[in-house]
Simulated scan of single mutants.
Amino acid sequence: MGSLANGLCAAALGLAALAFAAPATAQTGPARNDVLVLNQERLLNQTAYGARIQQELEEASIALAAENRQIEELLTAEELELTDLRQTLPADEFRVLADEFDTRVSAIRAAQDAKTRDLQAQAEAARQRFFEETVPILLELVEGRGASVLMDSRTVLLSAGGVDITEAAIVVIDERLGRGGEDPLIAIPGLSSTPQED
């Protein structure tokens, strides 16, 4: 959830661009709301594009965790073998092997930590791209309803019916952006295992 919170926080900057002073226009029919609200978390979770980001993040996280467990098991087994050799090898020879093992373990852990950071960065970038691509669509919805301000619904204490455009935004975003293209949004090169789809 920390990454999700960061993504939504960054997206708020893009959403803030929609808080604009729209030129006055003559309106016919029922009065329109000057202020509309939108639930960004629902937008990310319930659009096909946003759900795909969450799915790819989850799949990559599962694959990375599985790889980490496999590596840990192999290193543990190797460490036990090395411990057994300690009883039979001269001290200087054992020290060489132990130092080599420690160096390799440190390098492996650094590489896995880098994959974790890469995964987090890709997830953040994918969310940011999602919100950047949805801003023009949201702007059209706001202008089409004669409003001048769009706010995150989580910052609004109370609102009347009809001012929340989340559902309408989800429908239009799905129509316009679909799943966000064909290329993977999140992928960690070098993973030794990947989850299989059911």
Rank of each mutant, 00 (worst) to 15 (best):
R104M: 10
R86L: 06
Y49L: 07
A114F: 00
Q87A: 12
L38W: 03
E67M: 08
Y49S: 03
E124D: 11
R86W: 08
T103F: 13
R86C: 08
Q54E: 12
I53Y: 01
Y49A: 05
A66D: 09
L85S: 15
R104C: 06
A60P: 02
D113F: 03
A110S: 12
A111D: 05
K115R: 08
E72R: 04
Q120L: 15
A107M: 09
Q40D: 14
T76M: 10
R52I: 04
V37K: 04
L64E: 01
A60E: 15
I108T: 06
I62S: 09
D34N: 09
V37P: 10
E93N: 12
A107P: 02
D34W: 10
A91K: 10
V37Y: 06
R109C: 03
A48M: 07
E78R: 08
E72D: 11
A110P: 00
L36K: 06
Q40M: 15
V35Y: 12
N68S: 11
L57F: 15
L97F: 07
I108N: 03
E93F: 13
T76S: 14
E124Q: 14
T116W: 11
N39V: 01
R32I: 12
E100R: 13
D99A: 13
D118K: 00
V105N: 00
L89Q: 06
A65F: 05
A77I: 02
Y49G: 03
L38E: 11
A51C: 01
D99Q: 13
K115V: 03
I53L: 05
S61Y: 04
T47E: 08
Q46H: 14
V35C: 02
A111R: 05
F101T: 02
E58F: 11
R95N: 11
Q120T: 15
A98F: 10
E93K: 14
T116Q: 11
A111H: 02
D84F: 11
L97Y: 07
Q120S: 13
E41S: 10
A126R: 03
E124R: 12
L64Y: 06
L97M: 11
A91G: 06
R52W: 05
S61D: 09
L44I: 00
L89F: 10
R32S: 15
S106Q: 13
L80T: 14
D113R: 00
E100S: 15
A51M: 01
A60T: 04
R52N: 05
E56Y: 04
F101I: 02
R109Q: 06
N68K: 14
R95A: 15
T116I: 10
G50T: 00
L80P: 07
A51L: 01
D84Y: 13
L119S: 05
D34H: 12
A123T: 08
P90C: 07
A65N: 07
A48D: 12
L36T: 02
R104E: 11
E73A: 14
N45E: 15
A91L: 12
A125I: 01
A66Q: 09
R69Y: 14
E79Y: 11
A114C: 01
E78M: 08
N68V: 08
L43C: 03
N39T: 04
L119D: 07
T88H: 09
D118R: 01
Y49Q: 05
E59T: 05
L75G: 03
E41P: 08
Y49V: 01
D118S: 02
L85H: 13
D34Q: 12
T88D: 12
L80Y: 13
Q122N: 02
E100I: 04
D84G: 12
F94C: 12
D102Y: 04
